[in-house]
């Protein structure tokens, strides 16, 4: 269980996290979603106490992380991939962390096998690929068999097999009753893994919702309509309460269901050649939701420029 209440973090004049409150519950996978630079990593560092909040609190399993007697058994965290001394072997890195808590070296061997690094355990971590580094970070997170697992972009740098492995791992950790909190900037990845979503943009909470509700709410309810008597049908739909937009080869109708449109056309004897409910993809829905809060926009070359008329 992670409880974040009124969390604020300012770095000088820049506010990285602004009045953030949410709860991450055990037994499910909670996705932490936001564009790059939206404050996900900062929030995770605040939960671990690596950064001190400007105000507000972050509690883990009822206490501040630092107040636990066995912090590594409460929260296992994968932060940025670069949290390992490059000159030390994977085994010695994990052993040094385990020893602080009196965790036996047999557990180190166990987590190395779990993440598939037993072959390279004696190699220096500096020689690891990005994916191997991620696996080592996940091994470190699991070392204390923690009640809460918090992973920052765990699939970064992993191959498809590794991505699948992380998905299964997260699901099984949650099934064991753990709190699983995992950040990503990819909605599609979260749709496959998470049960619940916390979406932030510019450090502020945008949505705290189940994945199902997010998907349902995301469909834009547009219906693509084509008809040989298009103008006539468009007129009709507009008067029945639809909002009609002309597109290439037909119209998109908002505010009416496909059934309502079909019935209206039939009642007036107008043939319909296409009647397609359009669902926005999750990625589009996510982008719509966070559009105003994206830190860095790519410049759209075709976008109309103010003052220029054609």
């Amino acid at each position: 269980m992670i409880e974040v209440d009124g969390l604020v973090k300012r770095y000088g004049a820049k506010t990285a996290v602004n009045n953030l409150s949410f709860t991450v519950k055990p037994g499910i996978v909670t996705g932490f979603l936001g564009p790059n630079g939206s404050g996900k990593s900062t929030t995770m560092r605040l939960i671990l106490g690596l950064d001190a909040p400007s105000s507000g609190t972050a509690m883990v399993n009822g206490r501040r992380y630092a107040d636990h007697r066995a912090p590594l058994a409460e929260v296992g965290a994968l932060l940025e991939a670069r949290s390992v001394h490059t000159g030390r072997s994977a085994y010695n890195h994990l052993l040094a962390l385990a020893q602080t808590h009196g965790i036996p070296s047999s557990r180190v061997t166990q987590v190395l096998e779990l993440v598939g690094l037993q072959e390279v355990a004696r190699k220096r971590a500096g020689k690891f690929s990005l994916g191997m580094g991620q696996r080592l970070g996940i091994a470190a997170a699991l070392l204390g068999d923690p009640a809460t697992v918090m992973l920052d972009e765990p699939v970064n740098g992993l191959d498809p097999e590794g991505i699948l492995w992380v998905r299964h791992l997260l699901r099984s950790l949650a099934a064991e009753g753990r709190t699983v909190f995992v950040s990503s900037h990819l909605m599609s990845e979260m749709a496959l893994t998470a049960d619940h979503l916390i979406v932030i943009g510019r450090g502020e909470l945008i949505a705290d919702t189940s994945v199902q509700d997010f998907i349902d709410g995301a469909s834009r309810n547009l219906v693509r309509v084509r008809s040989p008597r298009m103008a006539e049908l468009a007129q009709l739909l507009a008067t029945t309460g639809g909002v009609v937009t002309t597109v290439e080869g037909g119209v998109d109708v908002a505010g009416l269901s496909a059934a309502q449109i079909g019935d209206a056309a039939a009642a007036n004897g107008i043939a319909v050649h296409e009647l397609t409910p359009l669902q926005a993809s999750l990625e589009e829905a996510f982008m719509d939701m966070t559009r105003d809060s994206v830190e860095f926009h790519a410049v759209d070359a075709d976008a109309p420029t103010a003052g220029v008329t054609s």
Binding site: M1, P26, G27, N61, R69, A70, P71, L72, A73, H85, R88, N92, L95, A96, L97, Q99, T100, H101, G102, I103, P104, R107, Q110, G144, D145, A147, E176, G177, R178, T179
Partner: peptide
């Protein structure tokens, strides 16, 4: 309750001064 049902595989894990000294020696 949910977390209490789970049996930890490292039930005796505790952050201690001796543990920190061991860790720093390993490092």
């Amino acid at each position: 309750t949910t977390t209490a049902q789970r049996q930890s595989v490292v039930p005796n894990a505790r952050l201690t001064g001796v543990g920190i000294l061991r860790s720093e020696w390993t490092k």
